[in-house]
Amino acid sequence: MTKVGETVLEIDLRALEHNYHYLRSKINPSTKFLGVVKAFAYGSDSIAIAKKLESLGADYLAVAYTLEGVALRNAGIKLPILVLHPQQVSFATMIEKCLEPSLYSPAILSSFLKLAKQLGQKNYPVHLKFNTGLNRLGFGEKDMEFIASSLEGAEQIKISSLFSHLAASEDMNEKEFTLAQIQLFEKISSQLITKLNSQPWRHMLNTSGIINYPEAQYDMVRSGIGIYGFGNEASEDEKLIPVATLKTIISQIHKIEPNESVGYNRAFVSNTSIVTATLPLGHADGIGRQYGNRVGQVSVNGKLAPIIGNVCMDMIMVDVTGIDCKEGDEVIVFGKKPSAEFLASSAKTITYELLTGISQRVKRIYID
Rank of each mutant, 00 (worst) to 15 (best):
Val262Phe: 06
Val262Gly: 06
Gly263Lys: 04
Gly263His: 02
Tyr264Leu: 15
Tyr264Asp: 13
Tyr264Pro: 04
Asn265Asp: 15
Arg266Ser: 15
Ala267Trp: 01
Phe268Lys: 04
Val269Arg: 09
Val269Lys: 08
Asn271His: 14
Thr272Lys: 15
Thr272Leu: 07
Thr272Ala: 15
Ser273Met: 13
Thr276Ser: 09
Thr276Ala: 05
Thr276Asp: 05
Thr276Gly: 05
Ala277Arg: 00
Ala277Asp: 01
Thr278Lys: 07
Leu279Met: 10
Leu279Arg: 02
Leu279Val: 02
Leu279Ile: 06
Pro280Asn: 10
Pro280Gly: 07
Leu281Asp: 11
His283Pro: 03
His283Gln: 13
His283Leu: 08
Ala284Gly: 07
Gly286Ala: 11
Gly286Ile: 05
Gly286Tyr: 09
Ile287Gly: 03
Ile287Glu: 03
Ile287Ala: 03
Gly288Lys: 08
Gly288Val: 02
Arg289Val: 09
Arg289Ala: 12
Gln290Asp: 14
Gln290Arg: 15
Gly292Ala: 07
Gly292Gln: 06
Asn293Ile: 11
Asn293Asp: 14
Asn293Gly: 12
Arg294Glu: 15
Val295Gln: 10
Val295Met: 13
Val295Arg: 08
Gly296Val: 05
Gln297Met: 13
Val298Glu: 03
Val298Pro: 04
Ser299Gly: 10
Ser299Lys: 13
Ser299Asp: 15
Asn301Leu: 11
Asn301Glu: 15
Lys303Gln: 14
Lys303Asp: 06
Lys303Phe: 06
Lys303Ser: 15
Leu304Glu: 12
Pro306Ile: 11
Pro306Ala: 10
Pro306Trp: 02
Ile308Glu: 05
Gly309Trp: 00
Cys312Met: 12
Met315Arg: 13
Ile316Arg: 00
Ile316Phe: 01
Met317Val: 14
Met317Trp: 00
Val318Lys: 02
Asp319Phe: 00
Asp319Thr: 05
Ile323Ala: 12
Cys325Asp: 09
Glu327Lys: 11
Glu327Met: 11
Gly328Asn: 11
Asp329Lys: 09
Glu330Asn: 11
Val331Ala: 01
Ile332Ala: 11
Ile332His: 05
Val333Gln: 04
Phe334Gln: 10
